[in-house]
Amino acid sequence: MKVLTPRDERDALRLYRRNPDAFPLAGGTDLMVLWNAGLLNKKTILDLSGLRDWSRIRETPKGVWIGALATHAEIRTHPAIRERFPLLVDSCRTVGGRQIQNRGTLGGNIANASPAGDTFPALAVYAALVHTVSDNDRRVMPIDEIFAGVKKTHLKAGELIEGVELQTPPNPPSRWRFRKVGTRAAQAISKTVFAGQLWLGKDKVVDDVKLALGSVAPTVKRLRHVETHLTGRALDGKTIESALRLLPGDIHPIDDIRSTREYRLQVSRNLIRSFLMGR
């Protein structure tokens, strides 16, 4: 076990370039579970905890910047995020217990790329932009495009997540909701996670809608087919039902140790329906 402990961003990127197989360590709430299970023996660790700047949350002209090392607890209690991005606050509140919220970071959570990441559907409906940085490059990727599969991202060798940018929508949505369905009331791994925002215009016509689900596919899914069908149509029972029929095109739930494919599909459908119907 070798631990690299960079003091600042430049140092970190240089070390990572030289040690592309190193495991970046943020809050450790996922990585340390692997270590405890003996799965990281003899690996190299890049400990990012010295990068103090990366844990900042700040307001920007367009919205909010959340440093990769900001913890779920810091995000959950930040006044600007509480005011403008309530879905993210709700999702951070459901991550583990207080101990995990105090330690786990947003950047670490994204890099870990669990299909059950609780914050991802919220980030997806806010169309969050993930900023990455390497020794010789900077990139920006939409949240739902950074994931390549179960526990896999499109991050390149030597590339780290620097922060997440959220842009305040021009008009506040008419309706929004976050709902996690887990294995129990708290400290649970999700079976399905829903986040949605809806903008209704005149005569209940859908001006815009953003829906996302987690835990029902290898990565978080924006429900593009369902969204497209709804947009521009009057929101009535018939429209909702026909939109819901498109859901299987957007998600691919599976049977696993925690739940079943059927349940995930049905509850996802129910969650979207009850959100759209305003119940």
């Binding site: 217990g97 294995t183 129990r184 009331a185 708290a186 400290q187 791994i189 140790i257």
Partner: peptide
């Protein structure tokens, strides 16, 4: 037993 960990063998928390 394949869910032999407290993460997947679910016992009630204070909120349950």
């Amino acid at each position: 037993m394949i869910n032999n960990q407290l993460t997947n063998y679910i016992i009630p928390t204070a909120m349950d």
